[in-house]
Design a protein around this nucleic acid. Sequence first.
DNA 1: CAGTGGTCTAGACCACATT
DNA 2: ATGTGGTCTAGACCACTGT
Lengths: 267, 267
Amino acid sequence: MKDFIKNQEPETKRVRRVAMPEHIDAIGHPLYKTIKLEITRRLSGGEWSPGEALPTEKALATHFGVSIGTVRRAMDELVAEHIVVRQQGRGTFLREFSHDLMLNHFWRVTRHDGSREIPIVQTLSFERQTPDPDVSKQLDLRARAEVFKVVNLLLLGGRRIMLDEVHLPCSQFPSLTHEMLVAREGTMFSLYRDEFSIIVICTDERLLAVTADRDAAKILDVPVGTPLIKNIRLSFTFDKHPVELRKSLLLTDGYEYRHSVGGSTMV
Amino acid sequence: MKDFIKNQEPETKRVRRVAMPEHIDAIGHPLYKTIKLEITRRLSGGEWSPGEALPTEKALATHFGVSIGTVRRAMDELVAEHIVVRQQGRGTFLREFSHDLMLNHFWRVTRHDGSREIPIVQTLSFERQTPDPDVSKQLDLRARAEVFKVVNLLLLGGRRIMLDEVHLPCSQFPSLTHEMLVAREGTMFSLYRDEFSIIVICTDERLLAVTADRDAAKILDVPVGTPLIKNIRLSFTFDKHPVELRKSLLLTDGYEYRHSVGGSTMV
DNA sequence: CAGTGGTCTAGACCACATT
DNA sequence: ATGTGGTCTAGACCACTGT
């Protein structure tokens, strides 16, 4: 009945979907998710280095055989996850794990006026061990899988502010050594990325009010009983796969812990 | 030189932009932002009530004289801000300020297993006062502007867990009374929305480690010196306009404070 | 100037929900 | 069967960056 002008060039449309590389599981996913997953696969594989320009949206569109809008849709999510940055007129770049990103995205400790400061990190200990069942469970490890345990002391304004106990699955950081931790510039997250191609996307944090016990008090140089915030943080890479468990004690003296809820787009 | 087939129907395109209602300032904004702003204006005006279906995307598109994709772009941000919910095949609805939203979006206190519980609120005091300079500054008030100060005690599992001191600008909540607070069902935020058409979009929180002083210890029924998390939270409506300052003391005993960084879209 | 991302269009088809 | 939101297309034009 209806005189729709449909399928003027019929053979080129649905075919493209199955023209995707075979290792991509497109079932049940919208096309842009598939594109996004393929791009993240290449990122994880180290195909582009931080700061480097990705192919243009047009190039990606023709490469994948999809419309440019579909590529943009995939890129939109990568931008939202702080994995890439777009610069109008210049290109799209794999985000560098700069102090800027670290400070504004994952580093929650500020001065009372809201300004942020780069912490100085001192690695106090480094060992390989069989984790507690609790640690093993949170990191989703197989039985008898081992972890590296790193203890760091963080200084702000020359004062001891934070004591970190970091647990990393040995399977994901096979060649990690004490020397790498001591010698490195920048944050732990930049180390994960540059040396192991592990990109941290998101973290879940659990905060508790505690007081300093004797050990913590000694290391942080405060009286026993000083109030501290205990932060149990689990960090994830793609697919919500856990890569790091960090237990921190934070001294909020001259500093505070800040975060926002819901303020991403804002008018 | 180039045989672009441009402007086949020339008069209908750019004209639409200026065909917008005159009270909209479209300068420098992309069209979808203008659409979004206009929709939020109507929401603030109470044009639709919570739970009610908005016009269809197609209807909005023809009403504003724009493409359906542009309306979707505006809606995408409203969805991201938890203002509306889309249901495929049904429609788009102004989000109800349900316990569900409250619990999963703004309520950060959970049991140690991550489960959430609806707090029971007891209003301990209600008064109108001239705020401290600090409170006045954070709420962005004019000189001599007054605030309502509400003190609430929150119970979880029958135990006293949190002590809130809430500051509200009188100008934005003109008819607020003690009775409204005592009589209400649901959260403070639902009260703001239902009675004053004020929709809270986002909050900034500042956390400090403290110990219970004599007054707090008495009210929370814990020993003096018990570690607490002090949370100074500023809540905003559209345009990052502050509407509430809340200073809370949280007892993390059987409970903890949880939040995520960066986990909105996730693969 | 050419090339990039940013916005916008007009439509098609799909998946889902309701009648 | 109808109507909704969800996805996708092919292309145009704009704003910006670099030459």
